[in-house]
């Protein structure tokens, strides 16, 4: 028997005539199939809609969480970090400081001191926001970051030819312009040193670097030398460029 066998060639005809005679797929079968599909479709919808709902809720929750994290938590964390490192003290926080601290900062204000020989003659004077130790920084107007890096007793030989009994205190500060505009910083207007009696000490040397404007992103380190009377404690003031507030760094004679 090969492919040309008439029986095989006529297999379809023979099968249809003998074994497969009649109609075996009717409307009833179609309806059964459609019903089965409708059932599975309904089941699919029933399973998809809750899944979509749950998925949407999850996405919404993630978005809300992200927004909450970035808008509420992250700024607080960065703010805390900034306060820790740079001691940015907002106005509100100053008002919540303890009474003792307020009194302390008010009394040390060189601007209000009657015995001052400061160049600043304003009656009210800037408000002292924080009392820091050497090595701490503060961010002020124009995103100017100021840090007192070191203090030292400057040998008189570096400044003067004659030996004096005065103590020359060199305050090394780092200034960084993190803003977008040039900043002009006048040492005479912004930097002051007071002794334990709150008497301001005159500046006798300013680093020439400070004469130039501080460009955005620029970072300089300068030394300001004060001619001081000997004192156990010193207070270095940096008046904010706005002139409305100032920060004080406290150090002792032994730190020099």
């Amino acid at each position: 028997m090969n492919g040309d066998t008439p029986e095989l060639k006529n297999l379809k005809e023979a099968m249809d005539k003998i074994f497969l005679k009649g109609n075996h797929f009717s409307e009833v079968h179609k309806k059964i199939i459609i019903r089965r599909i409708q059932t599975s479709h309904a089941r699919k919808l029933d399973s998809i809609i809750p899944k979509v709902f749950i998925f949407s809720l999850s996405i919404l929750f993630m978005i809300v969480s992200s927004v909450f994290t970035y808008q509420v938590i992250a700024p607080n964390i960065s703010s805390d970090n900034a306060l820790e490192n740079e001691h940015i003290v907002p106005q509100e926080k100053v008002e919540t400081k303890t009474q003792d601290q307020q009194e302390d900062t008010q009394t040390v204000s060189p601007s209000n001191d009657s015995n001052t020989n400061s160049n600043s003659e304003t009656k009210t004077g800037p408000k002292t926001l924080a009392a820091l130790s050497i090595g701490k920084s503060v961010k002020g107007t124009g995103d100017l970051v100021t840090e007192v890096v070191a203090v030292r007793e400057v040998p008189t030989s570096e400044i003067q030819t004659e030996q004096t009994e005065e103590v020359l205190v060199g305050v090394t500060i780092r200034l960084e312009n993190r803003g977008n505009e040039n900043l002009s910083i006048s040492a005479n207007k912004t930097m002051k040193l007071a002794n334990a009696e709150n008497e301001l000490q005159p500046i006798i040397k300013i680093d020439k670097t400070l004469e130039n404007t501080l460009e955005p992103g620029q970072n300089i380190q300068v030394e300001i030398v004060f001619d001081t009377s000997s004192s156990e404690k010193y207070k270095f003031y940096f008046v904010d460029l706005s002139g409305e507030q100032q920060t004080v760094w406290l150090f002792d004679y032994k730190d020099l």
Binding site: M15, D16, F19, L20, H24, F25, H29, K30
Partner: peptide
């Protein structure tokens, strides 16, 4: 439909 039913029967 019809053809598939026949093949399935075979």
């Amino acid at each position: 439909g019809e053809e598939l039913t026949r093949i399935a029967y075979l």
